[in-house]
Design a protein around this nucleic acid. Structure first.
Length: 466
RNA sequence: CGGGGCGUAGCUCAGCCAGGUAGAGCGCUAGCUUUGGGAGCUAGAAGCCGGAGGUUCGAAUCCUCUCGCCCCGACCA
């Protein structure tokens, strides 16, 4: 039967009725009970994973591989991804950058204009639609954002401008590996700055530089900016942000003083940031391909290590604005190509990097800021009236505070519960057993240090919630 | 893209060389016992042995082709 306007109107109304909105639920009704959660943990190491972060992400039930270099994000993994995204977003917003969302599937046209359609090579996944139009799954977005700019911005008065997005990209890597650290599909924050002069663009670059330092620090990481090769994006000024980790994919070198530097707090992004940049770039730091013998660092002060690239910033001037005609009218009436930069953070890769930097033999150790739950609540004897009651109370109090706790209300044995909690790495474990309850205490375990303390319920909550 | 390896139950793997009707451990289901660091016993469910051809009375096993995945290197957020 063909739907009439009337039936269509009715069904649309039905969509607006309350049941349709049931998925939009306040925190209080989200389930954080393990018995209702999907957490497919693995006791054994999957054969497909060789490095520790990949193994732990699979074992902790965070991700599952869908195809080579392409992953499904399960509930626990998605929670971490969202937390990292939120930190990145906050720090970008703080600089005055504006969030937008560009398509994953792009037209080949602007790429033909910039010349990169031919230059990019096989890493670009090319698609032809039914009308024989050339499309591609975006590996990056300089062309698209430049197109947005030229069609919508025409005056120097609109600058400076920085647009960013947090979105999925695809690069058809020859050899995907290391789980989400080197996947083909990955979540990336990419920002693009537009300015009227080289000097102004330098300031835009510096803002991102500082924002990156802050972003990584909030995730519990020590990232070191290193002079970098600009690669196919082009330009002269570029830094990679590197996390030191044994399993890093490239060799890196830096002065040990960089490991001690502190990250600026309460930054005024309108002020001159050059002193901060100078401070961070005054000491030698370079990736393998930029490393030189004439670095001048005393033997004992040079750190040679392996690193994971978690961010890359470029200033490339008019490389795209010129061929694509992205110009603004200046005060004197002339039209001038804009000076651009682009700034990437590998959001999904960061999860792997954080685990590489923070784990032990028992599993992941999440830094507080990115942990999927603030704490785990372990009922050692589910079904016991006393422990059930205490756990229900704790669970409710967390929810009342708007904080998330993962309540293991299953009837697994204690050992299995402990092992699982250690594996998924929540910062705190609140352990409730019959003996403790009889004494009026719960046990609080710090995942990172392994310390366990018997505390009153209030003291435990105070420690976890702060 | 060069080189190597592997596809058998949800996971880890045995069986393949020397063809004969599919196995173990873990996990899962049920019951009993157990209960503070991945428990024990009993009973179960679960696999077109990656796919397609071929050889053979008979193929997980031999041959050919194909698809997928992993590892090492060269390349990349």
């Amino acid at each position: 039967m063909v739907s009439t306007d009337r039936t269509r109107a009715l069904s649309f109304a039905a969509l607006l009725s309350p049941p349709f909105f049931r998925h939009v639920r306040p925190l209080e009704s989200q389930t954080m009970r393990l018995s209702r959660f999907m957490l497919p943990t693995l006791k054994e190491n999957p054969a497909e994973a060789s490095i520790v972060s990949h193994r732990l992400m699979l074992r902790a039930g965070m991700v599952r591989q869908h195809a080579s270099g392409i992953y499904n994000w399960l509930p626990l993994g998605l929670k971490v991804l969202r937390r990292i995204e939120a930190i990145v977003r906050e720090e970008q917003d703080r600089t005055g950058a504006l969030e937008i969302l560009m398509p994953t599937i792009q037209s080949a046209e602007p790429w033909k204009e910039s010349g990169r359609y031919d230059d990019y090579g096989k890493e670009m996944l090319r698609i032809v639609d039914r009308h024989d139009v050339d499309l591609l799954y975006g590996p990056t977005h300089e062309e698209v954002v430049t197109d947005i700019f030229r069609k919508n911005v025409g005056s120097y008065k609109s600058l400076p401008l920085n647009m960013y997005q947090i979105h999925w990209k695809f690069r058809d890597e020859v050899r995907p590996r290391f789980g989400v650290m080197r996947g083909r599909e990955f979540l990336m924050k990419d920002a693009y700055s537009f300015d009227t002069s080289f000097e102004a663009a330098k300031h835009a670059y510096n803002k991102m530089f500082v924002a990156y330092l802050r972003t990584y620090e909030r995730m519990g990481l020590k990232a070191i900016p290193m002079a970098a090769d600009t690669g196919p994006i082009g330009g002269k000024l570029s830094h990679e942000f590197i996390i030191l980790a044994e399993t890093g994919e490239s060799a890196v070198y830096c002065h040990k003083g960089l490991l001690e530097k502190s990250v600026p707090k309460d930054v005024d992004y309108d002020a001159d940031l050059q002193p901060i940049i100078n401070d961070w770039t005054s000491l030698y730091a370079a990736t393998d391909e930029m490393h030189v013998e004439t670095h001048g660092v005393p033997e004992g002060d040079l750190v040679a290590a392996r690193g994971i690239e978690v961010g890359h910033i470029f200033h490339f001037g008019t490389k795209y604005s010129e061929p694509m005609g992205a110009t603004v009218t200046m005060p004197d009436g002339t039209n001038q190509p804009v000076y651009m930069g682009s700034y990437g953070i590998g959001v999904s890769r960061l999860i792997g990097a954080i685990i590489e930097a923070s784990h032990d033999d028992n599993g992941i150790i999440w830094p507080k800021e990115v942990a999927p739950f603030a704490a785990g609540l372990v009922n050692l004897k589910s079904g016991n009236a006393e422990t059930d009651a205490v756990c229900a109370d704790i669970y409710d109090r967390f929810r009342a505070r708007g904080s998330e706790v993962l309540y293991d209300d299953t009837d697994e044995r204690a050992g299995a519960k402990f092992a699982n909690m250690d594996l998924i790495g929540l910062p705190w474990q609140i352990i409730v057993g019959p003996k403790g309850v009889a004494k009026g205490v719960v046990e609080l375990k710090n995942r990172a240090t392994g310390e366990r303390d018997e505390l009153s319920l209030d003291a435990a909550l105070q420690t976890v919630l702060g």
